[in-house]
Amino acid sequence: MRAIEKRLDQFCRDHPRFGIPNLMNILVIGTVIVFLLDRFSGYRASYLLSFSASAIFHGQIWRLVSFVFVPLGSDILTVALSLYFYWWIGSSLEREWGTARFSLFYLLGVVFNIVFGLIAGYTSVTYLNLSMFFAFAVLYPDMRVLLFFFIPIKIKWLALADALLFVLAFLSSLIRLDIVGAFLPLVSILNFFLFFWSDMMDVLQYRRQRYQHQHSKQTVNFKKATKQAQQQKGYIHKCAVCGKTDTDFPDMEFRYCSKCNGYYCYCMEHINNHVHIE
């Protein structure tokens, strides 16, 4: 995965003019047009433009592209809010990444959906838009938005909530033996994994190392010794050789020896002049 991610980055650097500038503007305008056509045609437009493998195999190849413009919903307020939200996210990603990287990110998502749709019979851009949201949350985790227009919440918490719902939907589909419904979300966010695999692995490695450090024998002993010292002796550091403490000698520096087996503290006179404890 890391090798693929590096090749994608290299492609974007080598082809800076690749892609469609202001791609989200085109997607939003196209979706609005289809929504308006639906209102006057009894949703005939969405029917003719949505993804259908059987229709594509019978010559309606425009569905390979037009399905990305089919609105997700029929309520005007819901559609308007979702379009604005994803336009804001997509435009922010394009400004951060550049046109080439963002276009490649979205294009790969579309390609993955098309391949899956041709095999399974149908597909949707619902989870493709969710992949953009996950990407935005990785780049701007602490940005605040107003949930329900008045509750300030960080993007990362919304992303975690969406990820939980994503997992629940996946498990629910598996329980119902709906294999297509279970794997459509996974396929739709493959582009996210391709572009953020290194970041996710780095976070997992950092958290694993931090957990190991916090629960290591030396750290536990150090915390225990520090707590006992504060409660009983009134000092934090005490030289294991001469017994000097930071209470008796507040200007003295104390260090811990990395070669001793355990957290043993020494004053500056003995940090380099003591027998290491095995």
Score class of each variant (00 low, 15 high):
Phe133Lys: 05
Cys265Val: 10
Ser258Cys: 03
Gly181Pro: 02
Arg210Trp: 12
Asn272Tyr: 05
Arg176Glu: 14
Cys239Glu: 02
Gln231Thr: 04
Leu139Phe: 06
Ala169Tyr: 11
Val203Tyr: 15
Trp157Val: 12
Leu204Val: 13
Asp202Ile: 05
Lys156Glu: 12
Thr245Asp: 02
Asp248Pro: 01
Gln218Cys: 03
Val167Trp: 06
Tyr256Leu: 12
Tyr256Ala: 11
Arg176Met: 11
Cys242Arg: 01
Asp199Ser: 15
Phe170Trp: 08
Asp178Thr: 13
Met268His: 09
Gly262Glu: 08
His274Gly: 00
Leu160Ser: 13
Val180Arg: 10
Asp251Glu: 03
Trp157Asn: 06
Asp246Met: 01
Val180Ala: 14
Phe170Met: 03
His270Ala: 05
Ile153Phe: 04
Val241Cys: 07
Gln212Asp: 10
Asp142Thr: 02
Asp251Ser: 03
Gln218Tyr: 05
Glu269Ser: 03
Val138Phe: 03
Leu165Thr: 05
Gln212Gly: 02
Asn261Thr: 08
His274Trp: 01
Gly181Glu: 01
Thr219Pro: 04
Tyr140Arg: 13
Gln228Thr: 07
Phe193Leu: 14
Ser198Ala: 12
Leu160Gly: 14
Ala135Ile: 13
Lys217Val: 09
Val203Trp: 13
Cys257Arg: 06
Cys239Pro: 00
Gly262Pro: 11
Asn261Trp: 09
